[in-house]
């Protein structure tokens, strides 16, 4: 049996060096709520686990000029308790709060949810809608990547060997901007999203939508940024006709699978429904 090593570096550089220097498979441990399940099920067999929770940048939240930098390994419960952050980006925080139980919330993180690269990750469509950007560190320094470019397929990311997400940046929010995330699950808690929809939109003073981003989760191999859905809203007051167009555009963007969590037909229809419902919430938030 190969010995599994555990390291808890205290700096970004140290972590990058450890990950890059591993001879076999190395895994980043943030909240561990996916990693430990995969370890237990023998889905992965790394030789090194790098616990990044002792690196200050990865567990703290800061704000500068309205731009939030959220540590990739900060526990969701801490984000939810951050009243200013919650007030600024309720859709993102609520999306992350939907991941698992209270117990999971004590550990699960935005960075983990993103890098686990499940097409059904709740926080990802919300982050994409919010135009979030990742700061990624690696052996060759740092780079910034939009959230939608991180996952490339189920369990697959664009991160190179030795790279890991340090922070997630949420941009300065324009006036009259609101975000929202809704998902469908069979129960009321504890399920993986069958469909997830993140919406962020901005209104002008007359209530006309000037900018929008709509992202769908669990309806394709990775979360989608659906331009046609956003275009259905932009230039409108998000009236019934715009909502109908949004619904149709969201449905048209879906290419889901049949599985134990839902059928193609179900996922497609409900994507349209949730796009409308999430937009209604975002609209309410943009107006208030």
């Amino acid at each position: 049996m190969s010995a599994l090593q555990y390291k808890a570096p205290t700096s970004v550089d140290e972590a990058a060096a450890l990950l890059a220097g591993a001879s076999g498979e190395a895994r980043v441990l943030a909240g561990g709520t996916d990693l430990l399940v995969q370890l237990r099920a023998a889905m992965i067999a790394p030789e090194l686990i790098v616990d990044v929770k002792h690196i200050p940048e990865l567990t703290s939240v800061s704000v500068e000029d309205g731009v939030y930098s959220i540590g990739a390994a900060a526990a969701s419960a801490e984000l939810h308790e951050n009243a200013d952050l919650f007030a600024m980006w309720p859709g993102v925080i609520e999306a992350m709060d939907l991941v698992g139980s209270t117990q999971i919330q004590g550990r699960a993180s935005l960075g983990g949810n993103l890098c686990n690269a499940s097409p059904a990750a709740d926080s990802v469509p919300a982050m994409i809608a919010a135009s979030a950007v990742c700061v990624i560190a690696g052996p060759n320094g740092t780079r910034e990547v939009p959230v939608e470019d991180v996952a490339t397929g189920p369990g697959q990311t664009s991160l190179a060997k030795g790279e890991f997400v340090v922070t997630i940046r949420l941009p300065k929010k324009a006036p009259r901007t609101g975000d929202a995330y809704l998902r469908f699950i069979p129960r009321t808690e504890m399920d993986i999203a069958v469909v997830g929809v993140g919406v962020c939109l901005t209104l002008d003073e007359g209530g006309v939508c000037t900018a929008a981003r709509v992202s769908l989760g669990a309806v394709a191999a990775r979360a989608l940024l659906v331009k046609d859905a956003a275009d259905a809203l932009i230039g409108t007051k998000c009236d019934d006709a715009a909502m109908a167009n949004l619904d149709a555009a969201a449905q048209a963007a879906c290419s889901p699978i049949n599985d134990k969590r839902g059928t193609i037909e179900f996922r497609t229809k409900v994507a349209g429904v949730l796009a409308r419902r999430a937009t209604a919430i975002a609209l309410e938030r943009a107006r208030s």
Binding site: L29, G32, R40, G106, R107
Partner: peptide, 29 residues
């Protein structure tokens, strides 16, 4: 369950409610 789905292993770690099946022993340092 050993997968964080049932909560029977709930404990508090540094005042946070967690599933102890999803925390590594070494992390308790």
């Amino acid at each position: 369950c050993a997968s964080g789905d049932c909560g029977a292993c709930s404990v508090m770690v540094d005042d946070r409610l967690v599933c102890s099946c999803l925390v590594m022993g070494v992390e308790a340092e």
